[in-house]
């Protein structure tokens, strides 16, 4: 009995250490703020549980095949009047399979005139690039596109 309980304890300890240690390391490396390593958790942190609607108003332009993952141009445009009552508050850009899924959060104001962001991201592997839009009415819209990467850009 002693041997059995000892072994069981050992197994549990081993399982616990394998599970706990990587998460602890991740927690130590994680930057401050609502930053998460999984795309679902990151979206959850921003929306606070509100539903996200895939909308045709959001136009995400990215190459279908990127030869070099280190530089992938991404353009996000949103159909919005950009007036004081109805404007795009924020554009969040995600790379769903990077080790840090968040690329950029852009807070816009009616002074912008048009809701657009063009930037360049790094992609480690072939993955979806996702845009999450927050409007001034509190709605969350999204769009995503798959990008095939022939040479990864991370590391």
């Amino acid at each position: 009995m002693k041997r059995r309980s000892f072994l069981r304890g050992l197994g549990l300890a081993a399982a616990a250490s394998t599970v706990v240690v990587p998460s602890m390391v991740m927690a130590a490396e994680a930057p401050k703020g609502p930053n998460a390593f999984s795309i679902d958790a990151a979206v959850q942190a921003i929306t606070g549980g509100k539903p996200v609607v895939a909308s045709p108003k959001v136009h995400l332009k990215a190459p279908e095949i990127a030869e070099n993952g280190a530089v992938v141009p991404v353009t996000i445009e949103v159909d919005s009047p950009m007036t004081e009552d109805d404007y795009v508050k924020a554009i969040h850009v995600f790379a769903t399979k990077n080790s840090n899924v968040r690329c950029a959060d852009v807070m816009l104001t009616p002074a912008n005139g048009k809701a657009m962001l063009a930037t360049r991201v790094k992609l480690g592997t072939s993955q979806d690039v996702m845009a999450l839009i927050e409007t001034s009415k509190g709605e969350f819209l999204s769009a995503s596109q798959n990008v095939k990467v022939t040479i990864g850009g991370c590391g």
Binding site: V71, T75, L117, T119, V121
Partner: peptide, 24 residues
């Protein structure tokens, strides 16, 4: 300030940020 951005390391080397702006 009219546009603020928070960015992370997933952006490319030598990044470019393009936005629209109404000239006041």
């Amino acid at each position: 300030p009219f546009t603020t951005m928070k960015t992370w390391e997933s952006l490319s080397t030598n990044p470019v940020f393009t936005i629209y702006f109404t000239v006041p």
